[in-house]
Amino acid sequence: MATSIAPFRLRKYHWLAVIPPIGMLAGVPFVNRVHTLVLGLPVLLSWIVGWVVLASACMALLYALDHRAAPEPGERQ
């Protein structure tokens, strides 16, 4: 059992995780001006729903990349 709490190594592709928060929030002022419907939902709502799904996709991609980048022994089961 490790006693140090070395944070796991950050890699370049970890920047993927900041895309959904920034994309979702930065777009809010712009899509908020539009009064049309997309897929039957108000633009603001479909924008947010789209980013929630993308957040899941980004996390899945991160997970896959992290698993390919040599898992540390004993850390992953």
Partner: peptide
């Protein structure tokens, strides 16, 4: 429309959780 904030913050917290919770 202001209600939609309730749908947003969880997704952002989950993006953070990938790094924060394991530590």
């Amino acid at each position: 429309a202001p209600a939609l904030y309730i749908l947003c913050y969880g997704a952002i917290a989950y993006c953070m959780s990938y790094f924060l919770l394991p530590v």
